[in-house]
Amino acid sequence: MKLLKFNAGRLVPALEEPPVEVSLEDWRANPQAHAGATALKISNAAPLDDIAGDLSGFSVVILAFPGFKDGRAYSQARLLRERFGYTGEVRACGEILRDQIFFMARCGFDAFEFSGADADSAAAALKDFSHFYQAAADGTAPVWRRRLARAAAA
């Protein structure tokens, strides 16, 4: 497992001390006992309706992909970014493969505990597509906005 993060727009291996993790349940049960934690780990079954108050103070939120087919954390990441305005690191852990990182990045993940061997290939996979039809959490303009902009410029 290798931690990959964006550096100047490129996905590269990150060399850093692991954060101090606490699960959402443990944190809620006893915040004082976990005052030193820097990363909040949220299960992909956890509802996020009341998460806003828990986020401040954590520089990292870790979301889980127990298997690559379990896509709940895509929705969770978008909610964190778009609904709750979380601007810290959103990290993907679990089964993180080359061909899924592209979707994760679009949903607001910016750190990946990569399961594969070849970090360069994961970076390359991010460049597979140059346009997206829909808006997500990565701030890229969807194709329909580009069409509008082009029509306006013409």
Partner: peptide, 13 residues
Amino acid sequence: RQWSTFHPEFSFL
């Protein structure tokens, strides 16, 4: 069709 194509959130339902 366009909205759902490579939808990043809904590719692993």
